[in-house]
């Protein structure tokens, strides 16, 4: 089999993941895109392992490890997203901007107070969710 096929597929999947990470607003969608990127890497590893006929099968072993690490990552990531959602009433990545530089004449500074009134509403929603769960 031509090595270019799996390699190019891997690259395309990776770039699709990049796009997802950069463009998606919902944190869980971002996590999905991250999974796509990880799978692209896995595919690359397997393809090169098969091509090189590595005696230790390091490519496939690493793939397995990557899958395991990815599973752990998705678990922790989801837990963090959940916690953020509980605390702030949103899981939108572009609204988690606590590290922004508040400057005079900065539009984000004006956004900050505008966000605030919405936050408690989300928060009570979150509490209700927990109570019902």
């Amino acid at each position: 089999m031509h090595l270019v096929f799996p390699a190019v597929l891997s690259m395309l999947l990776f770039c699709a993941g990049v796009y997802g990470v950069l463009a998606r607003r919902n944190a869980i969608l971002v996590l999905m895109a991250v999974e796509l990127m990880l799978n692209a890497v896995n595919l690359n590893l397997v393809a090169f392992d098969v091509w090189l006929r590595d005696r230790l099968h390091s490519g496939q072993a690493l793939t397995l490890f990557t899958i395991a690490v990815a599973a752990a990552e998705i678990g922790i990531g989801l837990a963090i997203v959940l916690m953020v959602y509980r605390g702030r009433g949103t899981s939108d990545v572009d609204r988690l901007r606590d590290t922004a530089e508040p400057g005079p004449g900065d539009q984000d500074a004006a956004d900050g107070p505008a966000d605030a009134p919405g936050t408690p509403a989300h928060r009570t929603e979150a509490h209700r969710t927990e109570a019902s769960a």
Binding site: V21, L22, A23, V93, D94, L96, R97, D98, T99, A100, E101, G103, D106, D108
Partner: peptide, 10 residues
């Protein structure tokens, strides 16, 4: 440069 510090990770 300050304007670039939006706090948006993306």
């Amino acid at each position: 440069v300050r304007r670039a510090q939006t706090g948006n990770v993306q």
